[in-house]
Simulated assay, not measured.
Amino acid sequence: MLILGVTGNIGCGKSSLSNIFKKNDIEIIDADKISRQIFADKNLLQEVFVNFGEGIRNTDGSLDRKALGRIVFNNEDKLIELNNLTHPKIKNKILEKINKAKKNNEKIIVIDAALLIEGGYTKIIDKLLIITCDEDVQIKRIVDRDNCTREDAISRINSQMSQEEKIIYADYIINNSSTLEELNIKAKKFIMYMKENWCE
């Protein structure tokens, strides 16, 4: 089974790429979805409230992810603190899903994770695909999608490892500075390349 890592910085279109893979019957392990699910663990949730304050608790007791985001995107130490709390639990869930895929005889499994390199997942993947885009496009997408200011968008971009640093690790790069239609063409070309060159 081929384990493909897919990563890219905020606003580059990683989720759009994964959706194209899904439509082509490729199994996706979505780290962001898992990161939401782990907060069903009340002990973890309480630990996050203790570490980051009551300002991130909604009135119903759930996590205000936007409020937490404002804290960690503007403070590298707080971002590291959050990652130290959540990443071990996320990684365990991902490993469980990989083992299940192996038992189901899947030919390809994709790990979709924003912090794939930073989280040490390069040790468990076989190949790495990185999606990139021009910074101006990236900023506009974040502003439009999240209804935030340009300054907030830049702050989020700067909280991540740079695109230039990430592509050093890449086995394949897709530039997604154009339309969704263009991404679809590039993704299908990549799927063909992957099956011909990386799958047994």
Rank of each mutant, 00 (worst) to 15 (best):
N43S: 07
K166E: 12
L115V: 08
D171S: 02
S159M: 10
R57P: 00
E165W: 00
D77K: 12
E106R: 15
K107T: 06
L85S: 05
E27V: 05
R150M: 03
V110Q: 02
L45T: 11
F21E: 00
I109N: 03
E106I: 05
W198G: 01
I168K: 15
K14G: 00
D32Q: 04
M192P: 00
Q37G: 04
A113M: 08
N175K: 10
L115A: 03
N9I: 00
C148K: 10
S162Q: 03
K195Q: 14
A101H: 03
L128W: 00
I131W: 09
I80M: 15
I117E: 08
A31Y: 05
K123S: 15
I56E: 01
E81Y: 06
G69D: 06
L68V: 08
T132P: 09
T122M: 14
I174D: 04
A187C: 14
K97D: 07
G13C: 08
E181L: 14
K123H: 11
D112C: 02
L95P: 01
D32V: 08
N19I: 04
D136K: 13
L115N: 04
T59M: 06
G13Y: 12
D41P: 05
I157M: 06
F52G: 03
E181A: 14
S15R: 03
R156I: 03
H87T: 01
Q160S: 13
S155V: 01
I38S: 07
D112I: 03
D134Q: 11
D136R: 05
G119N: 10
K91L: 14
K78I: 05
A114K: 10
S16I: 02
K93W: 01
R36T: 04
T132Y: 05
K66G: 10
S177D: 13
N99A: 00
N84V: 02
I10V: 14
L85G: 07
K42D: 12
L85W: 08
N92A: 14
N92D: 15
E182Y: 04
E118R: 11
T132R: 09
E182L: 01
M161S: 14
S16T: 10
Y172D: 00
